[in-house]
Simulated assay, not measured.
Amino acid sequence: MQDVSIWLLLVFILGSYVQSITGFAFGLIVMSVVGLFSLVPLDIAAFAVSVLSMTNAATGLYGGAWKQVNAKNLLVFFISSTPMIVIGVYLLDYFGKNALNWLQLFLGITIILACLMSLIKPKKSTEPSGSSGYFVFGALSGILGGLFSTAGPPISYFMYRQPISIEVIRSTLLSVFFVANVLRITIMGGSGQITMPMVWISLIGFPCVVITALLAKRYPPKISPQIIKRIALALLLLSGVSLSLKALL
Rank of each mutant, 00 (worst) to 15 (best):
C208S: 15
V89Y: 00
M54P: 07
R230W: 00
I164F: 00
L203W: 04
K72E: 06
A71V: 15
V241G: 11
S125A: 14
L28I: 08
W66L: 12
T22L: 04
L100C: 05
L52Q: 01
G23W: 09
V136W: 11
S118P: 00
M54E: 04
G152I: 10
I169V: 07
L238I: 14
T82N: 09
N101T: 14
N181H: 10
S20G: 13
M159D: 02
V33S: 05
L113T: 14
S242D: 10
V199D: 05
V210F: 15
I166H: 13
L100A: 13
L173R: 00
V69Q: 01
W66Q: 09
M54W: 06
K217Q: 14
F106G: 03
F26C: 07
L36P: 06
W7F: 15
G27P: 09
E127G: 05
N73I: 01
V209S: 07
N98G: 10
I211T: 13
F177W: 11
V40K: 00
I87D: 02
G23Q: 10
A139P: 00
S53C: 05
S125W: 12
S244M: 13
D3W: 12
V176F: 06
K72C: 00
V168P: 00
A57P: 02
V176E: 01
S38V: 10
G240L: 12
T126I: 11
W200K: 10
R170C: 04
L203A: 13
L174A: 11
Y17R: 07
G205F: 05
G145I: 02
S141Y: 05
V34H: 07
I204P: 08
K123H: 12
P128R: 03
M31E: 02
I6R: 11
N73F: 02
L183E: 13
I187G: 07
F12E: 07
L147I: 02
S165D: 15
L105C: 14
S129V: 04
T126V: 11
I169W: 00
P41E: 09
L52D: 01
L92T: 03
Y157M: 07
V241T: 13
N101H: 15
S132V: 14
P153C: 08
I109K: 12
I164M: 02
V40S: 04
S224G: 01
Q2K: 13
A234H: 08
V51E: 00
K217V: 06
V136D: 03
R184D: 00
S81C: 08
F158I: 03
I21R: 12
I201V: 14
T55M: 14
K123G: 09
V86D: 05
G146Q: 02
G108L: 13
G133S: 07
I231F: 03
A71D: 09
V179R: 08
